[in-house]
Design a protein around this nucleic acid. Structure first.
Length: 582
RNA sequence: GCGCCCGUAGCUCAGCUGGAUAGAGUGUUGGCCUCCGAAGCCAAAGGUCGUGAGUUCGAAUCUCGCCGGGCGCGCCA
């Protein structure tokens, strides 16, 4: 409808150019917009205002000339000039109601845009497997999953990927933490635990599993573990040195094979837990990519950088010239002790993504990583990608409150609200919707008391209720021994304000998908659905649907069934269910 | 100090590639169930869009300064 009107107005523009009223070389970027208020018609065109200056005429005068030169368009009912020079377009009721059959024809695929032939990879969550997901990860999960669905609907071929940080120091610290708990379960004295170790209960759980299945196989006297150990922080030492020494001691005492067994027990348990947790949250991935599997790729990527002249040696370390590509300074790839940095792994990972042939890469990261974005972009450019290839979308933290009290969160201290807890207390639907209602880069206050105790106030129920209400009316219809027939409907009877406004809203669904996808903003879908629900509820209260007149009843039912389909399609993008009853 | 994000109604937030009288939810106040689900509807009240300049026909929206809040500035991950 919008594009059709745009063409019509373009014709008028060329006519004015032929008459020499408007400069011929002008190609103004004018818009046809949905009017914000019904009294401004269905659409508004700002063409007259955009050409006012080059044509040296006043916009209202030009608007009249445009209208005079508009070719016949039988979907247009009436045109008005308003305000500074808007042309308000009133569309005929019949052409508005076409959308209903459009929705019926496409069903679940209504809203699906044509395949754009491009492959996109979306990496999100990617939390370290050192503990269960907490509510902070939930936002990235909900946002990422919704964005993936949205981009798919916009015509992309989407791959969802989770990058598993299963290498590196934090994992070693987890392994050491598990082992120490395990030693306690074996009966070793446990009056001490490293201040920088992982203290959550889940570590005990993993240790218990290990002890149950393997008995005392990995037991060593605790005195041996703590001999020759640099002091921990509470004793006036350095907690980092202390924990690293403990990790090394674990490796020495256990030996390579046993250490790996303990390590893998921790990793596998937590990774599986994360996967199940996300699945229960309605978030699934196409690919789980292991950092450890990157080893050969790292060499390959470092070589590629070296051959391109993008790295150099200094102070015994190997550096990447990220400053050539807009980063503040160069970054270390390989430490003077010969170990690669996390950054080197990340370069290899992104290099690997490039080599997999995606047209577009999107990463969703916590906002605390924003300082890291320039160097990753620099690496991709050094490896030959253009700087539009990767978009890093930053998700701000949800600041947790219990009432007015801020909740401090730390994985290591084990003090956090898990995603699982949230899911079980407020429900997946409410949690998914709550997260995705906010723009991702907006700081968000997440009051647990509110989310838990007043979950009925969550707008998700408002939308679900609209959907269920339609289902309920259809049940009523059946109980009356009647059935809905599209052929018996006279859609031209849908001429009340409520009906016109609903039809108009349905007509915006496709462009809402396109706009939300282009801006990576699934919250636009949430707002769209909320508005549609408002329209539906108002309509319900203003008009009875199950009326006696056959043509009118079937027309109204056609309209609400079309709405129901859009509720289903939209909610499914957000990962929220559309219940028949509540 | 430098960089990024944010500041809109009592509270939580939309609106931001410039457009008409700045919106919603919640909270407050008052109405609506002999009628398809009241988890709903209708109405009222509530705003110097942090602040000061600039750009122009027009600024919540763009530019700069300032104020306030969050985050980041490692051979950590």
């Amino acid at each position: 409808m919008k594009t059709q009107l745009h063409q019509t107005f373009n014709h008028a523009l060329s006519a004015l150019q032929d008459q020499g009223i408007v400069p011929a070389d002008l190609s103004p970027n004018f818009k046809i917009e949905h009017s914000r208020d019904k009294k401004f018609g269905d659409f508004a065109c700002n063409l007259a205002m955009t050409i006012a200056k080059p044509a040296k005429r006043n916009p209202r005068e030009l608007a009249q000339l445009i209208i005079d030169n508009l070719p016949a368009d039988n979907s247009i009912d009436k045109l008005e000039i308003a305000g500074p020079g808007f042309i308000n377009i009133f569309v005929k009721a019949e052409s508005q109601s076409q959308i209903i059959d459009d929705i019926f024809a496409k069903g679940k695929d209504f809203g699906q845009q044509p395949d754009n032939g491009k492959k996109l990879q979306l990496e999100f969550v990617s939390a370290n497997p050192t503990g269960p997901l907490h509510v902070g990860h939930g936002r990235g999960a909900a946002y990422g999953a919704a964005l993936a669905s949205l981009l798919k609907a916009a015509g992309w071929q989407v791959t969802r990927e989770y990058y598993v940080n299963d290498a590196g120091r934090q994992m070693d610290i987890l392994a050491a933490s598990v082992w120490l708990r395990y030693l306690s379960l074996c009966g070793e004295p446990d009056d001490t635990f490293p201040s920088n170790g992982y203290k959550g209960d889940y570590v005990w759980d993993i240790a218990a599993t290990l002890h149950r299945t393997e008995g005392d196989k990995y037991r060593h006297p605790i005195a041996d573990v703590y001999s020759d150990m640099p002091a921990d922080e509470p004793e006036g030492g350095d907690k980092e040195l202390h924990i690293d020494a403990l990790v090394n001691k674990a490796k020495t005492l256990l030996g390579e094979v046993d250490y790996k067994a303990v390590f893998d027990t921790g990793l596998d348990t937590i990774r599986d837990n994360i996967r199940d947790d996300l699945k229960a949250f309605g978030v699934e991935f196409d690919n789980w990519f292991s950092e450890r599997s990157l080893a050969p790729q790292i060499e390959h990527s470092l070589k590629a950088l070296a051959e391109g002249g993008h790295s150099y040696e200094k102070d015994g370390a190997i550096w990447f010239r990220s400053s050539d590509y807009g980063d503040e300074k160069d970054r270390v790839l390989v430490r003077d002790n010969g170990q690669g940095t996390y950054f080197a792994s990340d370069i290899a990972y992104h290099h690997n993504k490039l080599e997999r042939g995606y047209d577009k890469l999107i990463n969703i990261w916590g906002a605390d990583h924003h300082g890291y974005v320039p160097r990753v972009n620099a690496a991709l450019q050094a490896l030959g990608a253009d700087n539009e290839k990767l978009s890093v979308l930053l998700v701000q933290f949800a600041i947790l409150y219990r009432g007015t009290e801020k909740v401090q969160m730390s994985t290591r201290s084990g003090q956090f609200v898990t995603l699982k807890e949230l899911r079980e207390e407020v429900g997946s639907d409410a949690a998914r919707f709550f997260y995705v209602m906010r723009k991702s880069e907006q700081h968000m206050d997440f009051d647990l008391e509110l989310a838990k105790s007043q979950s009925n106030d969550n707008p998700v129920y408002y939308i679900q209720y609209a959907h269920a209400r339609i289902a309920s009316v259809m049940r009523q219809l059946e109980e009356k021994g009647l059935e809905w027939q599209r052929d018996a409907a006279d859609l031209s009877l849908l001429n009340s304000e409520h009906e016109q406004s609903l039809l108009n809203h349905l007509g915006r669904y496709n462009e809402t998908i396109q706009k939300a996808a282009a801006q990576y903003e699934p919250h636009q879908i949430a707002y769209y659905l909320k508005d549609l629900a408002t329209g539906l509820h108002s309509y319900y209260n203003a008009h009875a649907w199950l009326v006696d007149e056959v043509e009118l009843r079937n027309a109204r039912l056609s309209l609400i069934l079309a709405c129901q389909q859009v509720f289903q399609n939209g909610l499914s993008l957000l990962g929220v269910s559309a219940p028949e009853k509540m």
